[in-house]
Simulated assay, not measured.
Amino acid sequence: MRSNLQIASEHYAASGRGDIAGMMADVAPDARWTEMAGFPCAGTWIGPAQIVEHVFRVLGGEWDDYRMTLESLIDGGDCIVGIGSYSGTYKRTGRAMQARVTHVWRLAGGKIVGFEQFTDTLLVARAMQIDRAARDSSH
């Protein structure tokens, strides 16, 4: 049986390949996935279908080259912590961003049952913000 650390590591590897099915392979049907308030897909989503629809489709559709670069993975048994950086370019503004991020994974019975994201949402919001001057001149 794979360890919880291996399961989280495999999720990040699948993410790096753009393999959504691989990313969701070990997510429990009732997993609670929480993206921070202020983040583009903020909220708590339940189960793989909601997670894909409200998180990964949003990020893939609104950002170019959006990625999470993992720097370290900390094994806390049933709680795994991933530390790294987000990067990407917001399509509507053409602005790039890079923000530090921490993911807290909760696992039980070989399945991901919980996920919570912590990141600097201001850096993400700045990349998404349309300049007032540019917006005003278009009217």
Rank of each mutant, 00 (worst) to 15 (best):
L70M: 07
A42V: 11
D131L: 11
L107N: 02
I46T: 15
E53A: 14
D131W: 09
I7K: 02
A25C: 05
L73S: 08
A127V: 09
I7C: 05
R57M: 01
A21D: 15
D75E: 08
Q117P: 05
A99V: 04
M97C: 09
I20K: 01
L5V: 03
L70T: 03
A28H: 11
S72R: 15
H54K: 14
R57P: 02
G18R: 04
T119M: 02
F39P: 00
A25K: 11
Y66T: 03
A28F: 06
H139N: 13
T34N: 08
R95Q: 15
L123E: 15
R106G: 07
G88W: 08
V113G: 00
T121C: 04
G16C: 09
F118Q: 10
I51G: 01
V52P: 00
Y12E: 05
T93H: 10
I46L: 11
S138G: 07
E62W: 02
D136N: 04
T93R: 06
S72H: 07
E53H: 12
A49M: 02
T69R: 09
S137L: 13
G109C: 10
A25R: 08
H139G: 10
E35F: 12
A25F: 04
R67D: 15
A31D: 03
A21R: 13
H54Q: 15
H103E: 12
R92V: 10
R132S: 10
Y12N: 05
T102R: 13
A133E: 06
T119Q: 06
R132A: 13
A133F: 11
Y86I: 05
L59A: 13
S137N: 11
H11L: 12
V58Y: 01
K91M: 05
I80T: 08
M23P: 09
A96G: 07
D26Q: 14
A25V: 06
Q50I: 00
A96L: 03
R2E: 15
A13L: 14
A37Q: 14
Q98W: 00
S9P: 00
V101F: 02
R95P: 00
N4L: 01
A42H: 08
C41L: 10
V124P: 04
Q6R: 13
H103D: 03
Q6K: 11
H103Y: 09
R57G: 01
D131A: 14
V55C: 00
M23V: 05
T119S: 14
S3Y: 01
I130E: 12
P29H: 09
F118T: 06
V27C: 12
A13D: 11
R95K: 15
I130N: 05
K111Y: 04
R100D: 10
G110S: 12
L107G: 01
Y86T: 03
I20W: 08
T89C: 10
G110C: 10
R92M: 12
R95C: 12
M128Q: 14
S72W: 07
R92A: 15
S85G: 08
E10H: 10
Y12V: 09
V52K: 14
S9F: 05
Y66I: 15
